[in-house]
Amino acid sequence: MTQDYQLDHLDELEAESMFVLREVAAQFERPAILFSGGKDSIVVTHLAAKAFAPARIPMPLVHIDTGHNFLETLEFRDALAERLGVQLVVGSVQATIDAGRVREETGAQASRNRLQTTTLLDTIEEGKYDACIGGARRDEEKARAKERFFSHRDDFGQWDPKHQRPELWNLFNGNHMPGEHFRVFPLNNWTELDIWNYITREKIALPSLYFAHDRKCVVRDGVILAHSEHLPHRDGETPEMMRVRFRTLGDLTITGAIASDADTLEKITAEVAATRITERGGRVDDKRSETSMEDRKKEGYF
């Protein structure tokens, strides 16, 4: 305990995020937490549990299942929702495809990453959610550096980066018309290293994929991808056993692993502190063009 009424930076970030989460519960009728199964959304869920203790988190976890998720992610998701007593809502990209709302991508770069946006917006509309809390951080990607805590979306779910509301002090303006919604980012001011330090400090459980393990992988354009039935092989590719871990968890088909021996939180934190490549450096989806994140965000992506 500090004697001079000073908080360390993790306590200050935690206090800010809890304030944002409570503000969402107070200002909106039907908020939800967008839960990807990745470490950032796990930290958001942990912060929400703290913000509303001893009550249950007063909003559901919404997961968009692409059908290409790691099995470990799905098991972890179900166990967490059960332990916290929170409602789990799952939107299925496969169902969106089957209903003919979107068409599956084909070709060598095919992924379901972009298709998720339609399922996400459908799920938001069905649930009538007026605020969707995400785990994105400003340090992740350049299009996110200008993101607000309360980010307005029009009634088509679109983001207009040039006409964002100025955000002053901690006065968040969530006022909106029917049909519009907000995306809310309580972790805006956290960096990847802050996240790992906080997970270590709070002893937050994570899916096993984040820790070094042996797995069959293929190396494609310098990116290590997990071998699976959803990843069609290209000519000359043969999966080999590698010791890897994941820095972010997206779809199987696009999430690059890194070669690593870090099998504890302490080792991972040390590795993150020393690394010279950003965590999204392994994301094939961000490499499509210089502004691919901005383009997806404008359409309503996470």
Partner: peptide
């Protein structure tokens, strides 16, 4: 300056946060 309009016009539109 990550937004398309900023990169195209060489201007900064908004407050950017860096860490």
């Amino acid at each position: 300056d990550g937004l398309r309009a900023e990169r195209e016009q060489g201007i900064t539109i908004d407050v950017a946060y860096r860490y």
